[in-house]
């Protein structure tokens, strides 16, 4: 019983730590969009190109957060069952 609780607790802590990875993309995307607005303000004719590049850049940046999120989900739902099954 105690081992089960320790495994579940450690998995939850690990999942929480993995979600720290979700903070960075939010800040990075915001910064990139801010700079893109500045660029469009300087050169309004390049709006299409800037939007397209920024869109792909934001998607790439966001993947880091998704990786962390997937690790957190695996720690929450998959790993505890694997270890508890071995007890």
């Amino acid at each position: 019983m105690l081992e089960k609780a320790i495994i579940l607790g450690c998995s939850a802590i690990g999942a929480g730590l993995a979600m720290i990875a979700g903070i960075g993309p939010g800040i990075g995307e915001g910064y990139a969009v801010g700079k893109a607005c500045e660029a469009i303000g300087r050169q309004p004719e390049s709006k299409g190109d800037v939007t397209s590049t920024m869109l792909l850049g934001c998607a790439v940046a966001e993947t880091t957060g998704i990786y962390g999120f997937i690790v957190a989900l695996l720690l929450m739902f998959v790993t505890p069952n694997m270890f508890i099954g071995k007890l």
């Binding site: 939010g26 801010g34 607005c37």
Partner: peptide
Amino acid sequence: TVQKAAGMEKEGKAKSLIQFSYS
């Protein structure tokens, strides 16, 4: 969201919009 943010004039507003959308 990026298209909407690119059309904004205020940098801070665009930043907040994209962060809100991300969340």
